[in-house]
Design a protein around this nucleic acid. Structure first.
Lengths: 110, 110
DNA sequence: CTGTTTGTTAAGCATATACTTAAGTATCGC
DNA sequence: GCGATACTTAAGTATATGCTTAACAAACAG
């Protein structure tokens, strides 16, 4: 089984490549086939398929094959996991600032 | 100059490593020195410094050296850039769902 | 059945990443 | 000044990543 840390590794790694992000951008507008995803990119089809494998391994994208066409779509629940990590960090920071503010207010009062 | 895509590459790449994320987690609780960041990690100090360089190159972390101590902190504005990219994708998707909803509603009406 | 479309598999290669150890530099405390 | 502290730099290495081309497979269209 893949723990949460490993999933975050794979997700952020998947998002770290501009071609893969462009694939996700395309998919956020709706499902697409492999060749539709490949069309705007300047690389070979196998390269696109490899990027797709990275995206699927990360959980960010799912796909199913019907006939000879593989249709891909974003898994928004998975993307949420990555967003959550960042929001959690921001929240920790904000809490810290709140406590710091309280402390400074006490100092002023005292 | 580094364009927005390159910055996103570096940020997501920086976030793709569990050691670097743990460093950010530590820093979200407040500034820390290099050796404080190194303490919970099981790697050599130079390795930690290399991770720190990746974080700084990405813009997610800033640091300044005073005397012999380098103090590091998270740049929250930079982290926002990565969050924004994800939220933009989600927003595109939600808009699409809205339009789809409108379309289906029209179909029902007509 | 045959050719075209759509994707898959395999192998190879150049570069990047994530470490390591060893050796150096610059404070700071006494 | 002198030892300890807090990094920093350099060099080397093993594995991972991002491609490529060539060859294969399956499904649909005529």
């Amino acid at each position: 089984m893949l723990n949460k840390q490993d999933k975050l590794d794979l997700m952020f790694q998947a998002l770290a490549d501009p071609s893969r992000r462009s694939m996700i951008e395309r998919l956020s507008k709706g499902p697409a086939s492999v060749s539709e995803l490949a069309k705007p990119l300047t690389m070979s089809l196998p390269a696109v398929v490899q990027h797709l494998q990275v995206l699927e391994a990360s959980g960010l994208v799912r796909s199913e094959k019907v006939g000879r066409v593989r249709t891909c779509r974003v898994d928004w629940v998975a993307l949420q996991t990555a967003e959550d990590w960042m929001m959690d960090r921001r929240r920790t920071w904000e809490l810290r600032l709140d406590r710091l503010g309280d402390f400074l207010a006490d100092q002023t009062k005292g």
